[in-house]
């Protein structure tokens, strides 16, 4: 079974040890997905697998067979126009070195869908009811799997708020 990466089918690698992350970066030269730790501790390698955010470093490429992978290269529009969240990151300076940025963006896009579904988080006051309001605390808890060392956290949260406001409007 092939893997669909940004709407293109690619074969799984022969060596079963190859991670989805290395498949993207070393085999397909889709280097927008970043390797930060290669051990599930930073979130830089976040991609969308069938729409859910996952860590591509701890996913063997073979595990993605028959599934749809969307990477940062597949986030902008068909004509190359930036996604609303990408625009927000630039506008609110939600980045400095830019290395954690693709992971933050993929993660936040999936997070918006989780919020829309009403999935709770550890800081949701009423776990049964789900998040009543999208507070900054909710966003921060849900984005805590994406480390940033330059310290762009405030700008990232502002960019996400802007996206949520724009898509809600």
């Amino acid at each position: 079974m092939p893997i669909r990466v940004n709407d293109t089918e690619v074969p799984a690698p022969e060596d079963a040890r190859v991670s989805l992350l290395d498949l993207l970066r070393e085999h397909l030269h889709l280097t927008g997905t970043k390797k930060g730790c290669d051990q599930g501790a930073c979130g830089a390698c976040t991609v969308l697998l069938d729409g859910n955010r996952v860590l591509s470093c701890l996913t063997l490429a073979a595990q993605a067979e028959g599934r749809e992978v969307r990477t940062i290269e597949g986030i902008a529009g068909a004509a190359g126009e930036l996604h609303v969240l990408q625009r927000g990151f630039v506008e609110h300076d939600g980045l400095q070195c830019g290395y954690c940025t693709p992971g933050q963006i993929c993660s936040a896009i999936a997070m918006a869908e989780e919020l829309r579904r009403g999935d709770p988080s550890y800081v949701t006051p009423d776990i049964a009811a789900g998040p009543a309001a999208v507070t900054r605390e909710e966003i921060r808890e849900r984005m805590s799997g994406n480390l940033c060392r330059c310290g762009a956290h405030n700008g990232i949260v502002e960019a996400i708020e802007a996206m949520l406001a724009e898509t809600a409007a």
């Binding site: 979130g43 701890l58 049964a128 849900r142 799997g145």
Partner: peptide
């Protein structure tokens, strides 16, 4: 929904673990 309503301790423990990405996997 059943876990959140009947066993909130389990939902909370799961949500305290790792990150959203890792919980998806």
């Amino acid at each position: 929904p059943l876990v959140r309503r009947r066993y909130p301790v389990l939902a909370r423990a799961l949500l305290a673990g790792a990150s959203a990405q890792i919980r998806n996997m």
